[in-house]
Amino acid sequence: MRPAPRGSLFRNATLAVIWLWLLVFVLAPTAMVAVASLLERGTDQFVTAAFSLESFARLFDPLYFQVFWNSIYLAGVTTGLCLLAGYPFAWLIARAPGRIRPLLLLLVIVPFWTSSLIRTYAMVIILKANGLLNGLLLWFGAIDQPLMLLYTEAAVIAGLVYSLLPFMILPLYAAMERLDLRLLEAARDLGAGRTALFLRVVFPLTLPGMIAGCMLVFLPALGLFYIPDLLGGAKILLLGNLIKDQFLAARDWPFGSAVSVVLLLFMALFLLALVYVRRRRADAEAAL
């Protein structure tokens, strides 16, 4: 599509809608959260208009460090597993014959057609003591007694990986599909065996896709509160759970807001670092 000329009605109208959207649904709520984090908790209202840094001070409690660390650990393991599973998966799609490639991509996207919450309930049915998985294993005689699968850390990680895997596969696929196969031939011609081919050509050229995929998995993984709730039996807390609990259970809006602000800052730093790395790469590969 050709870009609309500058100053045209269509262009101005579209931009106005986008800006309005960002203003009302992104900037305003974020500003409200930031303001709330600096106020005091109210007795008959959620917040009172008094400045206080107390919410942030409370974050230094070792209990919350533990939650923070736990979140990063779970998100990190999830990201690593998604990368391990998604990389070969994306490679197979990118190298599949052109006819079946759209079909394989469709299979990656199909889970998005139902709510992630419903799919997590489905996992509960599979994992619970008298669930599908245990039933199958018992029937095959692989085990004598049902395994305790649900309400474990493994179940939480499995749920996170299951929900977030498409976000890893899609950017990886995009990077691999762009990969010029003639470069692989050139590398082989120059003496690169399978290992050298991967380490020296495929890996560096798909690195942008890997970074993008890791961001798209790691950052949402920090906040997917309903997965630890349903699959971890609320024993395992993510930052997302902490925030949800503060707003809905403890009714401590300033503190929930403070956790949100810290999470936001953490994500922003992550993204800034990525942009910085990208820009350095782009400078080095200028004009490509």
Partner: peptide, 28 residues
């Protein structure tokens, strides 16, 4: 191919975009 003592100059050149000229030549 990787163990044949012959080398190819490709029509598209197939230079590695992520490597400098030096690193491209040093590849082999």
């Amino acid at each position: 191919a990787e163990r044949r003592p012959v080398n190819t100059v490709f029509q598209s050149y197939a230079l590695f975009p992520h490597l400098t000229v030096f690193e491209n030549v040093a590849f082999g």
